[in-house]
Design a protein around this nucleic acid. Structure first.
Lengths: 206, 206
DNA sequence: CCGCTCCTGTACCGCCGGTACGGTTTTCGG
DNA sequence: CCGAAAACCGTACCGGCGGTACAGGAGCGG
């Protein structure tokens, strides 16, 4: 029982790295079981088929993603009571965290699953959609909180601003990978941060 | 000669739609030749292997992409001599163009190739990188032009701003697909447009 | 009529995802 | 410590897919 979980986790670890590096289709089961030190029967004991592996992979990835966001932004809110300052600090912390990844961001499984790889079944698409909606709720809440304290220089929708966070991260990952410049992603986040700061900065009185 | 080109083009058309819909790995050669009305031998007459198909697909996609940007922004520069206004107009035109796609943006092959799908060979990765660099040059030039006429409210690097255009587009495509909301992508572009306008807006004198 | 482009047809290979199923070891609660 | 469930192993097999190897043919310009 305990052992089962452990093997499953190891399988998922190996699979996640391979999928992010080469894509889902290019990752063979034979390859995964070889590296995990398991047999094919063992694999199919844990996962009904490859699609279920994808599902488990995605769910675990999203969970971990949420955990990281929770940590960073709760940390930021500890450091500042002001919602705007806390958000800006969170972006900064996130950017720094991304800068410290030596080989750049390994890639987002949500993007992997939705941008590519077979017509994944409805279930996975729905998980993906829920993930994007969670991001929207998370950051949307922050922006609404900020808007209660600051008057934006331009009228912008809180949900659209929230989506912009996800957009910059997902797009930054793509551009960073295409350019082979790991620094691009954290840089893009900081540019976005500047935009947000500018948006809510009180207009200077002459 | 003429006939060969025509068949090749038809193959690429079919392949592009399939790849953007299901991913490269999930698109089988058998499927492509069935829809094109050609035999397997015929396919391998045009392309040495699947990787060469990917290369041709990508090159054609990027060419077309550049053509669209050329059209939109040359159009915008006809309508306004001011570099800032022309750029803002271009973003607006682009956003409208994206809004008019009934099923949303079909996906970007650059993202498809770099985010996923097998360890594509160096050649394809290099094509991808060049595409991203072209985008940077294109938009970077526009931002530098703008900066000669307008003083930005915050000091931001022109190349990073240029990358932000690509980032928002690529990220917007991902988020739009994940959310299954085609409108997200054009909306995100407009939010970015607002940021750019705000960045270069002269500070109002009280 | 030659030769080139642009294919068709057939046969075959190895990898991969997946199924089936019987057997074996490991683990843990009672 | 025992028994049952959990967690595998081994083997054999299937069809689909990417890819190879040729042999040959239709159509067309020179």
């Amino acid at each position: 029982m305990r052992k089962g979980e452990e093997t499953r986790t190891r399988l998922l670890d190996v699979a996640e790295a391979a999928v992010l590096a080469k894509g889902f289709g290019a990752t063979s089961i034979d390859e995964l079981i070889a590296e995990t030190g398991i047999t094919k029967s063992g694999f199919f004991y844990h996962f009904r088929d490859k699609n279920e592996l994808a599902k488990a992979l995605l769910e675990r990835y999203i969970e971990n993603d949420e955990r990281i966001y929770d940590e960073i932004f709760s940390r930021a809110h500890e450091l500042s009571d002001d919602p705007l300052q806390a958000f800006l600090l969170g972006l900064k912390l996130l950017s720094e965290l991304l800068s410290d990844l030596p080989n750049g961001h390994p890639g987002c499984l949500v993007a992997t699953m939705c941008t590519q790889e077979r017509a994944f079944d409805r279930e996975i698409q729905e998980i993906n959609r829920q993930a994007a909606l969670m991001w929207r709720r998370r950051f949307g809440g922050m922006f609404r909180d900020i808007m209660r304290h600051y008057r934006p220089r331009e009228a912008l929708d809180a949900d659209q601003l929230a989506d912009m966070v996800s957009t910059v991260i997902e797009g930054g990952i793509v551009i960073s990978k295409a350019l082979k410049e790991p620094k691009s992603l954290p840089d893009q986040l900081l540019v976005f941060r500047t935009f947000v700061r500018m948006l809510f900065q009180p207009i200077a009185q002459a």
